[in-house]
């Protein structure tokens, strides 16, 4: 029930008990003292790290087969094409392997990447997927372009996300 409260502003009409101030103040104080003894939500970050669930979209990485150390990518360029922020650049080349094509150069500009996951979604080979890595910092703009050296991650380390994609994509 709302009505004017005497100051020309609308608000709930207070009972006499509430108008006495002190009982209500004590009620408020009992709420804060209970909060005082509740367990805290704070995570002590550098010591206590969070391991994200598989749904998490961290930094995009290239999947590398465990035995052969060859990337799954066939350099089709779909990821570069779909990328809304134009962060991916692929340079294709021929190879003796079955897949015939491989990325000679694969670069993601991490200043441009918006972690949308479109590259992962469009990839026909499950070769580029989103990892759990969210601790991405630079001190030099030249470090922000990640080449194959930083992007290639063995499939065994990415199992969570690969299984997640199999189940839900």
């Amino acid at each position: 029930m709302t009505t004017t409260n005497g100051n020309g502003q609308s608000g709930p009409k207070l009972t006499l008990w509430e108008k006495l101030y002190f009982p209500e103040i004590l009620r408020g104080m009992s709420i804060t003292i209970r909060a005082f003894f509740r367990p805290k939500f704070t995570r002590q970050y550098p010591e206590e790290r969070w391991v994200p669930p598989p749904v998490f979209r961290g930094r995009p990485v290239l999947v590398m087969e465990d035995e052969t150390h060859v990337e799954r990518c066939v350099a089709c360029g779909l990821c570069a094409r779909v990328c809304p922020s134009l962060a991916i650049e692929v340079q294709a080349a021929e190879t003796e392997l079955d897949k015939e094509r491989y990325p000679e150069r694969f670069e993601i500009n991490m200043l441009r990447c918006i972690f949308c996951g479109f590259c992962e979604e469009v990839c026909p080979e499950e070769a580029i997927i989103m990892s759990k890595d969210f601790e991405i910092t630079f001190t030099d703009p030249r470090d922000t372009i990640f080449g194959k050296d930083k992007l290639l991650i063995p499939a065994s380390q990415l199992r969570d996300r690969l299984e997640f994609l199999k189940e839900y994509r």
Partner: peptide, 10 residues
């Protein structure tokens, strides 16, 4: 500290 504890912080 008091303010933090009352706001579920450390």
């Amino acid at each position: 500290k008091v303010s933090a504890y009352m706001q579920d912080r450390i």
